[in-house]
Amino acid sequence: MTTQETGVQPQSGAMSLEELLSLPATVNVTTAGRALGIGRDKAYELIREGRFPVRTLPLGGTVRVPTAELWKILGVEGARV
């Protein structure tokens, strides 16, 4: 559903359901943080502390986050058709 269909505006900077469902298989930490409603710095802080709410994939000098795990924690698991 789009913002027009639901009549609900996402919070400033927050990701809409439509955006969330269109994400690729993995995303960067900034995008994952946005999906969770937290900033980039806070997301990296949580990763360093081992407290990020989903599994992360360290790949060389970058970190990726599995989108399916974001969907699950946000309660949109299986919503993609």
Rank of each mutant, 00 (worst) to 15 (best):
K42G: 06
T26V: 15
I38G: 00
S22Y: 12
A35F: 08
G75R: 09
T2R: 08
T26G: 10
L57S: 08
L70F: 12
G50C: 08
L74G: 11
L74A: 09
I47S: 10
V63I: 11
D41K: 02
R34H: 05
L46P: 01
E45Y: 14
I47P: 00
A79Y: 15
I47V: 07
T67N: 10
V63P: 02
T31F: 05
L70H: 05
G33P: 00
K42S: 07
E5D: 01
S12Y: 11
E69Y: 14
S22I: 13
S12G: 10
G50A: 14
G7R: 02
T2C: 14
P66C: 11
P58T: 09
T6R: 03
R80K: 14
D41L: 05
P53D: 01
P66W: 02
G50I: 06
L20W: 05
E77K: 10
G78Y: 03
E45S: 01
P58G: 10
V65S: 00
S16A: 09
I73K: 10
M1I: 15
T3H: 05
E5H: 08
A32F: 04
G33K: 00
V81S: 13
K42A: 04
E69D: 15
A35W: 01
F52K: 03
V29W: 01
V29S: 05
E45D: 11
P58N: 12
M15N: 02
T6N: 05
M15H: 11
Q11T: 14
A14M: 08
T31R: 03
R40P: 03
R55N: 14
G7F: 00
